[in-house]
Nucleic acid binder design. Structure first.
Lengths: 225, 225
DNA sequence: GTGTACATGTAATCCGTTACATGATTCC
DNA sequence: GGAATCATGTAACGGATTACATGTACAC
């Protein structure tokens, strides 16, 4: 409900582009010099874009490449007999570059960032789970995020050699910091959970004993937090 | 490629539930005491779950509610003539609560958090955009995030009165901190962008002048960072 | 009496995933 | 010779959105 106008009445398709975000991402990969196969694009996306954008199914990359070509935003070329493998390599066209630059420059709103965090949903539903089990889930998430963080750092280190690609580099730095923050956030939440529901232990003989009204709040209460 | 096993061979559908994440979220909303209409669920999701999970289309909430009822996870009741409006109210069943508790407890992996950040894609593609235009996009994102942050803080303040709902409260606290971090991250990125490409100004007479090899790196270079 | 909020749905469409199918090349 | 990687695609399906359709209640 955050504004986001519905383009007015009578289904007039956005005259210009109307491409899904994934198409722009694929075209973006092609915007760097050189030509590439769908397979290569997939590997590349998994190594960089995945940290802040997405990691698409390979079948969809092929589909987007065909669409991009149909629009004149990319051209493709079958490998000749000199190359060992039969494959199809794509390159961006002038038209494609212009359209992409328009998208990247922000003439049409690219939409807000989307975050879908199942762990948080589980925490939100913490009343259904045993406290230590919930904390274990958070701890597991921390471990997993630390793994991602390591991978992002490796990617950043790899990219450090290849200079002149400053913008991908900046995006990766953002990703590393973001993952660091994700770990911090999870740790802070763990602390909150412990405070709200101290682990069964002999070292906390203060405050309320426990089973007062923690179970079910008054019936018919309106939408909480 | 972060593990995430493909459930092994031969399409054996997950025997138990196989519900999409959205269904669990809707059922989760129902797991708090009281009965609610689809319309109320939508409003509630927009006021809380949206900060860390999702904000579904109203039509889909109705669809999920019907599915949940078909599975026996929820029951519905039409409003009688005593109520001013004709509507259908849903409540969770014992079965539904049990299934949801199983999901929330983590027996089946709920999947990793998903982040799709169009701004970062644009930054990654910064070579296509004028430096100050790109910085303007980041600045706009900061402003927008600060708006979200304010809303999240308001939600937290509203929830502060309604105690005993400690878990939703903890999730909201996480969201507030997360949005604060998002602002910090964007500011840091802005600084990186300024360093990489100093704004046309008279106050920085040091380091390299600029247009050396910043345009197109050597042709045929392999997949960069 | 007009607009907004409440309230529920259907239909069309599309993005995206999973599963399936196929085959060549390279590495061990 | 067998596994992993390279390489490309089709088919089925499902989740989710947008647009459309409809109507009541309430506030101003």
């Amino acid at each position: 409900m955050t504004a986001r106008r519905t383009t007015s009445q009578r289904h007039e398709v956005p005259p210009g582009d109307g491409l899904p975000p994934t198409a722009w991402a694929v075209l973006g990969l092609l915007s760097f010099p050189g030509e590439r196969t769908g397979y290569e694009l997939k590997k590349w996306a998994d190594a960089s874009l995945r940290f802040f954008y997405w990691s698409p199914a390979i079948s969809q990359i092929y589909a987007e490449l065909r669409r991009l070509e149909a629009r004149g935003y990319a051209t493709s070329r079958r490998s000749g007999p000199e190359e060992p493998r039969a494959k199809r390599s794509y390159a961006i066209t002038e038209q494609g570059r212009a359209a992409l630059a328009g998208w990247a420059g922000g003439t049409e709103d690219a939409g807000p960032p989307v975050l879908k965090h199942p762990l948080l949903l589980r925490v939100w539903l913490g009343h259904l789970t045993a406290p230590d089990q919930l904390r274990a889930l958070v701890a597991e998430h921390i471990a997993q995020t630390e793994g991602d963080l390591k991978e992002a750092r490796d990617a950043l280190a790899r990219a450090a050699g290849t200079e002149a690609w400053s913008h991908p580099h900046i995006a990766l730095r953002w990703s590393v910091r973001r993952l660091e923050s994700e770990v911090d956030l999870a740790r802070a939440m763990l602390a909150d959970l412990e405070e709200a529901d101290p682990p069964a232990a002999e070292t906390t003989p203060s405050s309320e004993p426990g089973p007062a009204g923690a179970g079910q709040p008054a019936e018919d209460s309106p939408t909480p937090g």
